[in-house]
Design a protein around this nucleic acid. Sequence first.
DNA 1: AAACAATACGAACGATCGTACTATTTGTTT
DNA 2: AAACAAATAGTACGATCGTTCGTATTGTTT
Lengths: 205, 205
Amino acid sequence: MDQQVTDGRLRRGDQTRRVVLGRAVDVASVDGLDGLSIGRLAGELDISKSGLIAHFGTKEELQLATIRAARAIFVTTVIQPALAHPPGNERLRTLLEGWLAYSSDRRFPGGCFFARASHEYAARPGAVRDALAQVDEEWVRLIAETVAQAQEAGEIEPSVDPAQLAFDLTAFLDAANLRSLLGDDSVYERAYRSMRDRLESVALS
Amino acid sequence: MDQQVTDGRLRRGDQTRRVVLGRAVDVASVDGLDGLSIGRLAGELDISKSGLIAHFGTKEELQLATIRAARAIFVTTVIQPALAHPPGNERLRTLLEGWLAYSSDRRFPGGCFFARASHEYAARPGAVRDALAQVDEEWVRLIAETVAQAQEAGEIEPSVDPAQLAFDLTAFLDAANLRSLLGDDSVYERAYRSMRDRLESVALS
DNA sequence: AAACAATACGAACGATCGTACTATTTGTTT
DNA sequence: AAACAAATAGTACGATCGTTCGTATTGTTT
């Protein structure tokens, strides 16, 4: 996204930003975007509070930057690999299985970053909530669109409402993520089975 | 649970506890069990910080008491009314529809208290997480047991795994709760439809 | 080498956090 | 009325919060 930077000063700043955000997403996935305190982050990274916040201005800007960083990781981990597969059922399954791996492999130590942060800010109006709501909506829409493509490919019954199926499938994923963190070890298998059964129930080919 | 208290001093204390916890569950449903600060709570209720915390000892004890208070509200709002119905499909539907109403009516201003709090503490070991995990497990188990009773009544196919069906159904509920808070107005209808379709797919009678 | 720009630091600000300690008030018991 | 018990209040503590300001460091440009 960013063009190659040759100025060593800007390069240094970008590197610091990267390190800070890399730590921020992990911290926030466990302790939330509120638990993401500037002093704590600076302490863990052995840099000064003032030097850290100078990159973002305010805490809210740091939170928004953290959301963008987490979104980029999610795209790289879950979405990009799936886009290598052809549209339709195969891509849909890759997306869903990729999500389960993203959660169960603990790409973020606190499980899905967005499940954690979205629940934290869902009932609190503001820029942070809006950003999280948009990411969530993008994700659900991607699943629905992929379902629609599978229909166009003749792999899923045309009578199925893509948004409805996407609601069900993403619900399974989120439930597995939460209950795994709460100590249920069987829940990823359950989610996989529910997902498979649900897809088989609407399969055509 | 508590026996009738005649001592006016203890009565006064119980009343204060009740007022504090009544406010605490609402605050925590929006701002989380961390956002539940003693100073804020005392300020909103016009009592002293020291007088408030004297009832609970520490903040963690206040959090645990808040979880117990929220659980009592949940039982009264969702579970008790359903227990008036006969075991089986009827009770199961009442539980699920009662939950959707509990969420959409905003019995807690931040939506489901436990969805909010569970995600907040899911990845943070301690007494608070354990208490939340237990409430969640109780709830899912109740749904699974009610499914099993519906099987015994010949209303649901005996081949169905009650825990698997309970996983699906509770997943729909939680997804509706979150996405409603994030601004999706159609999501309770979607959850209702998914729930109904899922139950019809395993119905016997 | 001098001027400039971006980054990073250190110190301090007022505010709020959870908690502890000491009165004071309110109600009961003798 | 006196002694006691429970609830409530007032004050202060050290720690941490987000933010601001002035200064030093690092790198580039002239």
